[in-house]
Design a binder for these strands. Structure first.
Lengths: 233, 233
DNA sequence: AATCATATTATGTCCAGAATAATAGGGATA
DNA sequence: TATCCCTATTATTCTGGACATAATATGATT
C-alpha cells in the first residue's frame, strides 16, 4: 500500500533546516539547486522555492541569483520583542490596571526635542506625564511629547481616562519608530512617582515615532524597580 | 502607446498597505477577496496571495479561511533587535576591541542554575567571567555558565583569545534563547571591572540558550554606564 | 594582460489550474 | 430555544510551466 505522502513546503523547510543543523550541509556550504531539490523531494520547483525563501527570511541561508543558496556562516539572530500598550502587559500579569494623568500642557518645542524629532522649525507640542499602576503599585512612569502638527486634534483630547499610548495607537496605527533601552538612576519625579530611593537603577525605554516621515511623538517610559523585559528567539 | 506596466506582488503589497494607511480600508474592515483583487490589479490570484501573505507576516492583516483578510485593529509591532557578538558591536562603532578572560573554572551546577536551565540532575558546568573593552575602556562584563553535557569539548577550550560568545556561536550556531533585559546596581565585581561607583545603574542582558531542547548556556552581560541598546521597527 | 561582449546558470517572479481545509451561516432537528 | 449538520465561500497550498533578472564564466578582441 505505502501511500506516497505529499510533501508540503513546510516538510521541505524542516528537512533542509534539519540537515543544516546536523551539519549535513555545514555552515558556508552551497545547497543543491532548486531543481535538484525538487527532484529529490518529488515536487515542483516553486514549492522548494517557497521553503528556501522562508529559511532566507529567517536568516538561515542566503540566496543569490546564479550564486545559489548558501548556509550563512554566522547567523544573526533577531530577537523579536512585541511592542504593546502597558495596559495589556499588566493585564497579562493578571493584575489590575490603573491609569492616571499627572500633567498636560501645550508648549513650544524645546530645542533638544526639535533636534531629536528632526523638526525644521518651532512647533506646538503637547507635553504629558502619566502613571500606570498595576494592582495599585507603581508600574511605569510615562513622559510624552506629541507633535501637534502631525496629529492636530490631539489638542481636543484631555487624556483623563485613556493613556496617550493607546490613543495614539488608534490614531496613528501604522508608524515607524526608533527605540532605545537603558538603565537610569531614579531622580526627581521618577523617584517620587515610582516610590524608590534616589539613584535606584530603573529600566527605561525611549521611543521616537514617525508616520510617513513625519515625526509624531517622543516618549520616555521608566519602569518600576526590578522590572525585566523578556523575549525569546 | 501607454504601455500597460506589469504589476508585481510588491506593487500590490504597497498599494494595499497604502489603502490601509489612508483608511480606505479602515482598521478591522474586511478586504476584498483574492479573486476580486486579482481582477482589479489584472494579475493572477497567486500574485495577490503573495502580497497579502507578506502583509500578514508583518502583522498588518490577519487571514482566515472563509473569514477573509481583515485589517488588524491593534497592530502589534515587533521590534527586531539583531543579536550579535560584542566584538561586532564595538567594531561597528569604529572602536578597538579587546577581550580578556578573567576566570575559568569547572564546577558542579549550582541549584539556581539547575532550575533555570531545567536540568534534571547535577551536571558539570564551565564557569567563565570575561571583560570586553572598547578603546581600552570597559564595555561589557560577561559572566557565563556552559553546560558541558551539551558541548563536551568545551573542556578543551581555554578561552584565552576567543570569547565564549563567539566560540559558542560557531559551535552551536542555530539555537533558541530566552532573553531578559533589566537595570541593575553596580556591586562587587561589576563596579570593579566596569570602573563605576557602587550602585551605579547598569544595563544588563541575561540569556538562556537551548539547542534541540537541550540547555546549552546561561549568560549575564552587564554593560558600561550609560549604554543604550537601540533598534527600530 | 586587460577589456569587453556573450552565453550560461540559478534564483526571482508570475501564471492558470486544481485540490484541500477551515469556517460562517443557514436549515433541519430535538 | 438550542444544537447539530450541511453547504457555499474563502484562503491555503501545490503543480508544472514560462519568462525575467542578476551574477558568473567564457571567449574574443584589443
Amino acid at each position: 500500500m505505502s501511500e506516497q505522502k505529499n510533501v508540503g513546503f513546510q516538510d521541505i523547510r524542516d528537512e533542509v533546516l534539519n540537515r543544516i543543523q546536523t551539519r549535513v550541509w555545514p555552515q558556508g556550504s552551497l545547497l543543491p539547486t532548486e531543481i535538484e531539490l525538487a527532484a529529490e523531494f518529488g515536487c515542483a520547483r516553486a514549492t522548494v522555492n517557497r521553503a528556501l525563501r522562508e529559511l532566507a527570511d529567517q536568516g538561515i541561508v542566503t540566496r543569490k541569483r546564479k550564486g545559489g543558496t548558501r548556509v550563512v556562516t554566522t547567523p544573526v539572530k533577531q530577537a523579536k520583542l512585541p511592542i504593546t500598550v502597558v495596559r495589556k502587559t499588566i493585564e497579562e500579569m493578571n493584575a489590575q490596571y490603573r491609569y492616571a494623568l499627572v500633567s498636560r500642557t501645550v508648549i513650544d518645542c524645546p530645542a533638544w526635542l526639535q533636534a531629536k524629532l528632526g523638526l525644521p522649525e518651532a512647533a506646538n507640542i503637547v507635553h504629558l506625564t502619566c502613571m500606570h499602576q498595576a494592582d495599585n503599585r507603581p508600574f511605569q512612569f510615562e513622559e510624552r511629547w506629541i507633535n501637534v502638527d502631525a496629529v492636530p486634534h490631539v489638542t481636543n483630547e484631555d487624556f483623563l481616562t485613556t493613556g496617550p499610548n493607546e490613543w495614539l495607537l488608534a490614531e496613528v496605527p501604522f508608524s515607524n519608530a526608533e527605540i532605545a533601552f537603558s538603565a537610569v538612576p531614579a531622580t526627581g519625579p521618577l523617584q517620587e512617582f515610582l516610590s524608590v530611593p534616589t539613584g535606584t537603577p530603573l529600566f527605561q525605554l525611549e521611543r521616537t515615532t514617525w508616520f510617513q516621515n513625519k515625526p509624531v511623538t517622543f516618549v520616555r517610559m521608566t519602569f518600576h524597580q526590578g522590572y525585566q523585559m523578556r523575549t525569546t528567539y
